[in-house]
Structures are given as structure tokens and as C-alpha cells.
Simulated scan of single mutants.
Amino acid sequence: MTDLAGYPADTRIIVRRERPHSGAQLSFFDQHECMRHHVLLTDTPFNSGSAQLL
């Protein structure tokens, strides 16, 4: 878990994991799981719509 004490109150971390396309260069961490990771740090309010719109 991550300490978000220095960030605004509604800050959250969204992590998306997907299979990489052929030829994609993966980091060492991604090579271990054979998945690609995208991380988004946002303080957008929950009531502003779906997280998919971010």
C-alpha cells in the first residue's frame, strides 16, 4: 500500500494491467509477469464520471 499523506484528500492510484503487443519492450518488472502495467495517480472526484474517462 502507498502512503498518500502529502497529496489531496481524494487522491487515488489506478493500475491497469494488459497483455503487451508483439514487439513491445518491457521493463524488468513487466518481463517477470509478462504483462504491461499502466499507473495513473489522480485526484479527480469520484462523482465526475467513470474512471474509464480519465
Rank of each mutant, 00 (worst) to 15 (best):
H32K: 07
Q25R: 15
Q31H: 04
A5K: 00
A24V: 03
V15S: 05
H32Q: 14
P8D: 15
L26K: 12
S27H: 04
R16T: 04
D10P: 00
F28S: 02
D10S: 05
G6D: 09
T11F: 04
A24Q: 10
A5L: 03
R12T: 09
A9M: 07
Q31V: 03
G6L: 08
I14R: 00
E18H: 14
V15C: 08
F28A: 01
D3R: 04
F28I: 03
T11A: 15
R17S: 13
T11R: 13
S27G: 04
D10G: 00
S27F: 09
S22A: 15
H21W: 12
G23P: 03
I14L: 15
F28C: 02
V15D: 06
Y7I: 02
L4S: 00
R17M: 14
D30C: 12
G23W: 11
L26F: 07
D3A: 05
R16I: 11
V15P: 07
D3L: 08
Q31P: 00
D30R: 01
R19V: 09
H21M: 05
G6H: 13
P8K: 15
R17H: 06
M35N: 00
D30S: 12
A24G: 04
A5M: 02
R19N: 06
T11N: 12
I13H: 04
C34R: 14
L26D: 10
L4A: 00
R12I: 05
A9I: 11
S22D: 13
M35P: 01
I13S: 03
V15Y: 00
F29R: 11
I14H: 01
A24H: 03
T11Y: 08
F28Y: 01
H21L: 14
L26V: 12
R12C: 02
P8L: 11
D30K: 09
F28V: 09
Y7T: 03
